[in-house]
């Protein structure tokens, strides 16, 4: 059970949040111009790595805002939290 620092509400228990998968995959602006393979790449393919991962989370039971976190999946340490649309603070 993590403690997640919501960029709007502050530190809260994980049970107030939901995870929303890999971050920084934006929806193609012109889907109709993509091949089946390109569309499938956007739709289905996700990374699942042991190590530093960029993730989307939403504060479901709080402010209902989406944001990104950087989490090391090998030890669950959350290295950074940042708002939607912002660049990752660390690489």
């Amino acid at each position: 059970m993590f403690i997640i620092h919501c960029p709007y509400c502050g530190e809260r228990e994980q049970s107030e949040f939901k995870a929303g998968g890999e971050a920084h995959i934006s929806r193609p602006k012109q889907p109709s111009e993509l091949s089946d393979d390109q569309w499938a790449e956007y739709l289905f393919m996700r990374k699942n790595i042991k190590g530093v991962q960029y993730e989307r989370w939403v504060h479901t039971h709080g402010c209902r805002k989406w944001f990104n976190i950087i989490r090391d999946t090998s030890n669950d340490q959350i290295q950074a939290v940042y708002k939607m649309g912002e660049k990752p603070p660390i690489k």
């Binding site: 929303g20 934006s26 939403v58 209902r64 805002k65 989406w66 939607m84």
Partner: peptide, 8 residues
Amino acid sequence: LEDYLQTE
């Protein structure tokens, strides 16, 4: 719907 509005 909130997800699309906030992120896309």
